[in-house]
Design a protein around this nucleic acid. Structure first.
Length: 588
RNA sequence: GUUCUCAUAGUUAAAUGGAUAUAACAAGCGCCUCCUAAGCGCUAGUUGUGGGUUCGAUUCCCGCUGGGAACACCA
């Protein structure tokens, strides 16, 4: 169905036309002075120059044409030339009634849906997840769901970091500790043990140790580089040990992401494209695009319009090994082969902007993608602590994601049991749901590109613009709907009425924005727009709730109208939190 | 050094070029015999700086100041 603003703009455009002006001037916008009107049109001011006429005169003529409009109940021309409008209650009511009937509340589906691959998460195997991974996972998951809801086909790929130096570091440290393992015996020809020589807990500790050692000890680092190369070139024992690391890590990662309600369609990694690299590099050379520079194989990606120096894109190191850039390019090659996506979206820390600029340019120049393929990098800001510096634990270490979530869960549990009498089982369940909403909403309500302050106190507070506030509103509505059913009401037999007072109308107008909001959120890959919307919607509902007795309403038609409005509000809210990646409990 | 990026109440954040810049938190005040007070209402407080484009600039352009980041053999 058409967007609400489009419909009322159409009415305004007709009035402009009838008054003898360009109809395109009749574009309506939301009022930024809600005390004066609901919607406004600034076309008279834009038209002043065109027609060499005072804007207020144009506005007056247009307003004249709108007397008796079925859409607007009130149109007034105000200096210097604003057209202030209020819409007819019956028009709003009819719009919502249609919206409630339609699939996805009347959001129009694209004629030619895109096939999209979104690359997010990006954890390194065997390295514990930290707060930085949270952003990629939370924002990526939400963008995926928004794009999918808007009618496109989208595939999420976790893109594991499973092929780099960190794998070599782990092997080296394992060898330090257990030098007699068969993995390191090059003459060994038998089967390798099924059991991994470490647990996930040990693995979590091995990597930081190894990483620290390699920074201090040159010889150790050499060994790690060598081990990395052995894994990549396929030395049997090293490859077997690598598989063990994967086998231990991946279930743990799955569990962690599951706790976040984040789900990937693809669990591919850098290792998956290893075999594509030699061919890709050869082709670049054969095409005359890649050349040797200082011993390394590079592709020039400068463009004439550049104001900045873009360094050449390095394909292979002077020792012939692959780099981050190489695996990303090979991944693009693989994705084009396997899925032929129309676009690819990447979510990483914004510090990697230049890297993706290089990768994208190189992919275009070397023909890995078609000129039409969309390549978008969404760089999100760093997660900072209250002091504005990168988020650390109290003792200065990197905060592990699990710890952080546990901490917030506990705080939520404490608050829930403080407030009401609930069984421990239910309190725990609810705490988990509310905590996740708090974390995700806290992250998503900020624009992704900005750094943001990760403030546990703020996240665990329930007041104001928070996830729990949204959930609370939903729970309230559910509670009323349940009571209505208990009293013998039937949710199937209610019909939307035209709003009867101001707070009800405000709620209706908020609901009517849904399709425009979702479309914008998809186009701009901006989950924070969904957050802002549901916050406004929840506010509008709570105000309405505060002023209106719903269940004790005596006029049956009116009461059913309220229930229909509540149903729509709940459905819209739940749809929105679902695309944001969290859910609401039954009670809280 | 070069380039990118950000700058909005005490704090954290909003605002397709439109009127008196919007919220939340923190501060102060008020509202539970009533569908969940994790709520609702009220009070006070902000666009770093100098130019430009425009009828109109937080928004676009140029300078300055201040923060953050990136800049070929890590990922």
């Amino acid at each position: 169905m058409k967007k609400f603003l489009e419909l009322i703009s159409e009415e305004m455009k007709q009035a402009f036309e009838a008054a003898g002006y360009d109809r395109e001037l009749g574009k309506m916008t939301l009022s930024n002075r809600p005390d004066l009107c609901e919607y406004q049109c600034n076309g008279a001011m834009a038209g002043a120059k065109l027609y060499k006429k005072a804007p207020i005169m144009i506005a007056n003529e247009v307003a004249e044409k709108l007397q008796g409009s079925k859409v607007f109940s009130e149109v007034s021309a105000v200096a210097p030339g604003f057209l202030n409008c209020k819409v007819q209650e019956s028009f709003v009511g009819a719009y919502l009634a249609e919206m409630a009937q339609l699939e996805k509340f009347g959001l129009e589906m694209p004629e030619n849906p895109d096939k999209v691959i979104i690359d997010y998460g990006g954890p390194n195997v065997a390295k514990p997840l930290h707060v930085g991974h949270l952003r990629s996972a939370v924002i990526g998951e939400s963008i995926k769901r928004i794009v999918r809801y808007a009618g496109h086909e989208i595939i999420g790929d976790i893109h594991l970091g499973d092929w780099g130096l960190q794998m070599g570091l782990i092997c080296t440290e394992v060898q330090e500790r257990q030098p007699d393992l068969v993995y390191f015996d090059e003459s060994y020809e038998g089967e390798y043990p099924a059991e991994a020589p470490f647990t996930i807990a040990e693995l979590g500790e091995i990597y930081p140790t190894a990483s620290a050692k390699s920074k201090e000890d040159e010889a150790y680092k050499e060994k790690a580089l060598e081990a990395t190369s052995k894994i990549q070139s396929g030395v049997r024992g090293y490859r077997a040990l690598w598989k063990q690391i994967m086998a231990v890590s991946i279930p743990d990662l799955k569990k962690n992401y599951e706790n976040l309600n984040v789900e990937f369609e693809l669990w591919k990694g850098e290792s998956d494209v290893h075999d594509l690299i030699p061919g890709m590099a050869e082709k670049m050379k054969a095409d005359g695009l890649a050349y040797m520079s200082e011993g390394a194989l590079v592709v020039d990606i400068k463009e004439e319009s550049d104001t900045k120096e873009i360094p050449p894109c390095m394909i292979l190191k002077s020792d012939g090994a692959a780099l981050y850039t190489t695996t990303d390019l090979a991944t693009i090659l693989e994705r084009m082969n396997d899925y032929q996506p129309d676009r690819m979206i990447y979510l990483t820390d914004k510090r990697q902007e230049l890297h993706f600029e290089q990768v994208f340019r190189c992919a275009r120049k070397t023909g890995l993608v078609t000129p039409e393929t969309g390549l978008l990098h969404i760089g999100f800001g760093t997660v900072n602590g209250k002091d504005g510096k990168p988020f650390k634990t109290r003792d200065g270490g990197v905060m592990r994601l699990e710890m952080l979530i546990d901490e917030i869960n506990e705080e939520m549990y404490r608050k829930i049991t403080d407030n009401r009498e609930v069984s421990e089982e239910e309190a725990k369940q609810t705490a988990k749901i509310v905590a996740l909403a708090a974390i995700k909403y806290g992250d998503l309500s900020n624009q992704a590109a900005k750094d943001y302050i990760f403030d546990i106190d703020k996240f665990t507070s329930f007041e104001g613009d928070t996830g729990p506030y949204i959930l609370y509103t939903i729970v309230r509505i559910k509670s009323i709907l349940n009571k209505y059913k208990e009293q013998g009401g039937n949710l199937e037999q209610v019909t939307m009425q035209a709003p009867g007072n101001e707070s009800e109308k405000a709620l209706c107008l908020e609901l009517a924005k849904f399709n425009a909001m979702m479309e914008a959120a998809c186009e701009e890959t901006a989950p924070h727009k969904v957050c802002a919307y549901i916050y406004d919607l929840a506010n509008a509902f709570n105000k309405f709730y505060h002023e209106t007795k719903i269940l004790s309403e005596e006029d049956e038609t009116k009461k059913k109208g309220y229930i229909a409005l509540l149903l729509l509000t709940r459905n819209v809210l739940e749809t929105c939190i679902d695309v944001l990646g969290f859910s609401a409990p039954e009670r809280m």
